[in-house]
Amino acid sequence: MRLTFTVNGRQQEADDVWEGESLLYVLRERMGLPGSKNACEQGECGSCTVRLDGVPVCACLVAAGQVQDREVVTVEGLADYARQRAEGGCGTGACGTSLDDAKRWQSKPADGRTGEAGAFPQQLSAIQRAFIDAGAVQCGFCTPGLLVAADELLERNASPSDEDIREALSGNLCRCTGYEKILDAVRLAAARTEEAV
């Protein structure tokens, strides 16, 4: 089938897609957006969490055919998504991170210039910044899914309790951090957002 859907605010098309292909495969191998990770491929670990029409889903469990005419946000578009949310939404459908921009975000060897002058100039979202500042990132493989899930939590609950956070993130496994710094990051993002408004 020809698949038409919106990824990170821009309309995209892909041809010769088998309807049963996973959305994760479409994103990673057809769209060139490998930020969403494949760690279990059966919805247990949350590493591939993306937003589908605003709802956090495991992209590995969504069939390509199901995303026809729908909107997907991945970690690559999270900063833009958060910025537009702060500005009151994107009415035109023309804003967002273009696929070409997203593909150009190549990993560069860390250059000792800390997080400030990074690989691409875009402003990070509050949750992305908080993950760096709180030290919530280790190997980074669970990070994209956790960021999408945590951002969605803060969108519907600006000041979550610790129980709210644990509940919201309990579908996202991390084998490195022991979660403490991840909780710290969500608290930090919530506190900073509260200060800002």
């Binding site: 990673r28 957006l33 490998p34 930020g35 969403s36 990770k37 991945t74 970690v75 690559e76 999270l78 900063a79 975000w105 190549q106 990993s107 560069k108 860390a110 250059d111 000792g112 800390t114 997080g115 990074g118 690989a119 691409f120 875009q122 990070l124 992305q128 993950f131 760096i132 500042d133 030290g135 990132v137 980074g140 493989f141 990070t143 994209p144 960021l147």
Partner: peptide, 18 residues
């Protein structure tokens, strides 16, 4: 703070099959 933190939170850090 971790030097490659920015790549890891933007999904641009490349792992083996990325």
């Amino acid at each position: 703070t971790r030097l490659e933190g920015r790549e890891k939170v933007t999904g641009t850090a490349r792992y083996a099959v990325d």
